[in-house]
Simulated assay, not measured.
Amino acid sequence: MGDRRRVGAGEYAERVNAAARLLEGGVPVVDAALVLSARFAVSLRQARRYVDVASSGGRVVVPETTVVFTVKLPAVLADRIRDDARLRGATISSLVARALGDFLASARAGNTEDG
């Protein structure tokens, strides 16, 4: 239990959801923490945190796996994206992912503006 690293969002969701399954199965909180501690090689204290999250909110959504995808954009467009992300308090990746998702959904529906 000594590497002291933070887990990624997917691993975190996996651990909270494991805690939720144990609780849903009727396992007492203390026992659920013991099981998680052993299963994920984390401290009992950290395992209890996963159980606490699961007991207060249930299961959490497992985020999709992401990949790096590099594109070249005109500098003006890249600046606009950066500015918009900053104003929204969002990441550039989330902003671009949403915009591309919306564009592709529109294209599938036959509503592209590029004609």
Rank of each mutant, 00 (worst) to 15 (best):
A38H: 11
F103Y: 15
P63E: 10
D31F: 06
V67R: 05
G25W: 05
R59I: 13
I81Y: 01
R82F: 01
A105E: 05
D102W: 01
V7W: 14
L77N: 00
S94I: 00
V42N: 10
S94T: 11
E113G: 02
A75H: 06
G26E: 10
R4E: 03
M1D: 06
G8Y: 07
S43Y: 02
L36T: 15
R6S: 14
V68T: 12
G58E: 13
L87N: 12
L100G: 02
A47Q: 04
N17H: 14
P74G: 10
R108N: 06
L73E: 06
D84W: 06
G8D: 14
V53G: 00
D52N: 06
L36M: 14
N17M: 12
E11W: 03
M1Q: 12
T91P: 01
M1W: 03
E14R: 11
N17S: 08
E11L: 10
A105H: 03
L100T: 05
N111W: 03
V29T: 11
N111A: 12
L36R: 05
S56I: 08
G101F: 03
S43D: 14
R59N: 07
D83N: 08
P63C: 13
R21F: 03
D31E: 15
S93D: 14
A78W: 04
A99K: 10
S55Q: 15
A9M: 03
V76T: 04
R98H: 09
M1R: 12
E14W: 01
V62C: 02
L44C: 04
A18Y: 08
A38K: 14
L36E: 08
R39E: 15
I81S: 01
S93T: 13
G57L: 07
A107K: 05
R80E: 14
G57N: 15
E11C: 04
V76S: 13
G2R: 10
L104N: 00
A19I: 13
S93L: 00
E14M: 09
V61K: 14
V61Y: 08
V67G: 05
A75D: 15
R88Q: 06
E14K: 12
G115H: 02
Y12E: 07
L104D: 00
E14T: 11
V30Q: 03
A19P: 04
N17Q: 12
G8T: 15
R49T: 10
A85F: 02
G89I: 01
A107Q: 06
E113N: 05
L22I: 04
A18C: 09
V53E: 15
A9V: 04
V67C: 03
A78Q: 12
A75P: 08
V35H: 13
S56G: 15
T91I: 04
R6M: 02
V68W: 00
A75Y: 00
K72I: 03
A90Q: 11
E64S: 12
V30Y: 04
D31L: 11
S43M: 03
D52C: 00
T66S: 07
L23V: 04
A38T: 03
A107G: 00
E64Y: 07
A9K: 11
